[in-house]
Amino acid sequence: MGGLEHRSLAEPAFPGDDGQVDPALVPVLGDPWATLAQLGGARVFVPIVAVLGERAADGGDKNADMAAVLMTGADGRRALLAFSSVARLETWNPQARPVPVYGQAAAQSALAEGASALVLDLGQAHWQVVETDDLGHLAAGDALVRTEAGTAWVRPAT
């Protein structure tokens, strides 16, 4: 083994994940408020696709990079795609590679890529857009709660 006997791979973030909808999202999909309240701590899948690059200098094959998928709306704003299950992602694009992340990490990635929204389950019956202040609060790890006056984002104590 050449000295590799003591090395180990890092533990996967979602061991035993079967690609189904995260149990926290199962009862709330279709209810925009409840979905948003659960999304930060739930596992979702961000699609990664191959993007053709430049042709090699010798005229050979083009290289390819892997990239998360951003959509651009008619108004020019961009959104990162995420899906609640592998099956829903594959319905959208069977060639996309599903990368499991927490909803909070997906929101952080959207903001890091200059997107102003996160679209959950595009093309499904209960797809949802998380944008503007909600996207920022989701990325920050804030909790969405109901109050007598309506809903509010609350920053957990540190």
Rank of each mutant, 00 (worst) to 15 (best):
G2T: 08
G3L: 15
G3F: 10
G3W: 03
G3M: 05
L4N: 07
H6P: 09
S8K: 08
S8P: 04
A10S: 13
A10E: 10
E11A: 15
E11Q: 04
E11F: 03
A13H: 03
F14I: 02
F14Q: 02
P15V: 00
P15M: 00
G16N: 05
G16Q: 03
G16M: 03
G19N: 05
V21D: 09
A24E: 09
L25I: 09
P27A: 07
V28W: 05
V28G: 05
P32L: 09
P32F: 13
W33T: 11
T35M: 03
T35D: 02
T35N: 01
L36W: 07
L36G: 06
A37W: 10
Q38P: 05
Q38C: 12
L39W: 02
L39A: 02
L39E: 00
L39Q: 01
G40H: 10
G41E: 10
G41T: 07
G41L: 07
A42C: 04
R43Q: 12
V44T: 05
F45L: 04
I48N: 12
V49K: 10
V49A: 14
A50H: 15
A50V: 11
E54W: 06
A56N: 15
A56L: 12
A56K: 14
A57T: 11
A57Y: 06
A57G: 12
D58R: 08
G59A: 04
G59P: 00
D61K: 04
D61T: 06
K62N: 13
K62W: 10
K62E: 10
A64T: 11
A64V: 13
M66C: 05
V69M: 12
T72S: 12
G73E: 13
G76P: 02
G76Y: 05
R78M: 14
L80G: 01
A82L: 04
A82T: 13
F83R: 02
S84Q: 05
R88I: 00
L89M: 10
L89Y: 07
T91I: 02
W92D: 11
N93F: 09
P94Y: 09
P94F: 07
Q95H: 14
Q95W: 11
P98K: 03
P100A: 00
P100F: 00
V101Q: 10
V101T: 09
V101Y: 10
Y102C: 05
G103Q: 12
G103N: 05
Q104M: 03
A105F: 06
A107Y: 02
S109V: 03
A110F: 02
A112L: 15
E113W: 15
G114D: 13
A115G: 01
S116M: 13
L122H: 06
G123L: 00
G123H: 13
A125H: 15
Q128L: 14
V129G: 04
V130N: 07
E131R: 12
E131N: 13
E131K: 14
T132K: 11
T132W: 09
G136Y: 14
G136A: 14
G136I: 08
L138V: 15
L138R: 13
L138W: 07
L138D: 05
A139W: 14
A140Y: 03
A140D: 08
A140P: 08
G141R: 11
A143Y: 09
V145K: 14
T147R: 07
E148R: 10
A149S: 08
G150H: 01
T151W: 11
T151L: 05
V154P: 10
V154E: 11
V154S: 09
R155M: 07
A157T: 03
T158W: 11
